[in-house]
Design a protein around this nucleic acid. Sequence first.
DNA 1: AAAGATGATTGCGT
DNA 2: ACGCAATCATCTTT
Length: 395
Amino acid sequence: MRLDNMLLAEGVSGPEKGGGSAAAAAAAAAAGSPTDNSIEHSDYRAKLSQIRQIYHTELEKYEQACNEFTTHVMNLLREQSRTRPISPKEIERMVSIIHRKFSSIQMQLKQSTCEAVMILRSRFLDARRKRRNFSKQATEILNEYFYSHLSNPYPSEEAKEELAKKCSITVSQGVGTTITVAQVSNWFGNKRIRYKKNIGKFQEEANLYAAKTAVTAAHAAAAAVQNSQTNSPTTPNSGKLALIPDEPPKTNQPSPIPAWSLLNLCSLWHAGFQMKDEEFQLDSAENKNTLLTNMFTGSSGSFNLPNSGDMFMSMQNLNGDSYQGAQVGANVQSQVDTLRHVISQTAGYNDALGGNPMYSPHGLNGNGGWQDATTPSSVISPTEGPGSVHSDTSN
DNA sequence: AAAGATGATTGCGT
DNA sequence: ACGCAATCATCTTT
């Protein structure tokens, strides 16, 4: 009885999908928001329905076997009735024995089904409650995306799906190691906040991934970049800006640029560095780090790039007077995105290969995205007419 | 075992 | 509905 109740409650032995609490939850999820909850539970429900199906087929099989066996026994008894008289009571007894036997078998089936449901349920709850670290490959994929979209680390829904799929495919090890979109969202939320909170702690990682993506991009893009640089050394921006479809004429930003935008800049600077100087090994990452810290603390580290290109001049500016921050930063940010565009357009992002929509339109948004998120000023300057568009570099 | 890292959850604001 | 911030709970490292 208890087993029947439980199976009924779990929606296993119900008529169809109705009845149980699980079905009610499913209905609620479907009625309310079919976004994540249903997706989260879809696996669970799928397995539950699988169990239910097995249960029902087995039940049917047992019933059929029971009937067959009963008729078989009846036939035997009928044959025997020729030789000896058989009371109907005996037949009844026989049949009841058979039914009892099969009902005990059914009981076992119900019990095992119950166990399966319990195991499934506990594992489901465990998966929800207990934390399981992502695999190294999965975090690598996520990190690659994060650091290559550092100026706007907000993957679109499509990108999240893509990442989730990618991670799950790459993982393909444990049982419950499929990474969902919600988990990707969680990951990015955690990453953003923790990155912003303690940038220093993530510098090494940022450099690592910047270098990583740069290496992949460099191999394909090095020639193109060098070409563009040598072809137009006097007017480097003209060629590069042409690659940008729509560069919004950003005015001076009132708020200081977010810290991780600077970091992004740094990473890209490293990327450029790496692209320019192939001898630069990863071992000297510490060197780079000190340079970077000097950059931001204002100590005039007189580093001279082996081949300081056009776009890196602004870095030295930033180094010279780092305190003025915002306006220079805005200007630099656009250059950074310029560089990003150059890289992305010449070689394509390594993770955006194949034209999949990983590179969300937000990311293309010049220096908009992340900064506009803080100041969603939709062109504040039609009436204002900001005289100083970017006279900031001259201080 | 303590400390740090990390995925998940919750409460809040927009 | 989404993101942020704080927090929890667990896993991993020391």
